[in-house]
Design a protein around this nucleic acid. Structure first.
Lengths: 105, 105
DNA sequence: AAAACATATCTAAAATTCTAGATATGTAAA
DNA sequence: TTTACATATCTAGAATTTTAGATATGTTTT
């Protein structure tokens, strides 16, 4: 069985920022937290950057930077569809983080 | 039943530093990670600051600052015995953090 | 092919964290 | 009751993170 390895400090760094924690929470239930997308009628690949940016009120470059750091930590997975990039949670890694905390900490 | 409230971002900030994570891990099993204390023959109140400092290799003031921040986040509990201050884990808060992550994140 | 749009990357300033030397405080020992 | 010791606090410079404007890249539309 494959075990997803995570670095507690690396992921804690991501979670040490309220906006980034909020983004992960929102992505748990996109239907409840975001308006419907224009071109597609589902959130199977997550939510587009613009919607996330609107919700946070921060600048486009800041949100893009945040999402990039979250992607580097494998907490989210990006998918490009046309002009848009959609980000969804990577629940495997989120669960693995909690498992590591429980086991190591 | 009393529920211990924790702030995910505040505690993640503590865990975003390898030394502080190490300290929490070491305090899980003081017998295995530290030499015996001079005046007392147990670790019931945790480990004295000097031992923790030696193990990290960082300066006294840095470790004192770290332990203070961890105490502010209620992750550790200090007890003074004579010249020494002992720090032990606050497992209630650590468990509550994990519970909050599981429920909220 | 040009214009418009969504997102990513570059750059840099502001804010925060890290870290340790100097000093203060509290306790025990001489 | 001075001295030594353990830890805490103050101060400040170094390192990192935060944040956004400017610009670049990739895609779609005209």
């Amino acid at each position: 069985m494959y075990v997803c390895n995570v670095n507690i400090v690396e992921i804690s760094k991501i979670l040490s920022n309220q906006t980034r924690v909020d983004i992960l929470k929102w992505l748990k239930d996109p239907e409840a937290n975001f308006p419907p997308h224009q071109d597609i009628d589902h959130f199977d690949d997550g939510v587009c950057v613009g919607f996330i940016q609107d919700k946070t009120g921060l600048s486009q470059s800041t949100i893009s930077t945040y999402l990039n750091s979250m992607q580097n930590a494998r907490l989210v997975i990006p998918t490009r569809h046309g002009k848009w990039t959609y980000y969804k949670r990577n629940d495997d890694v989120i669960q693995a983080y909690m498992k590591s905390l429980k086991e190591e900490l």
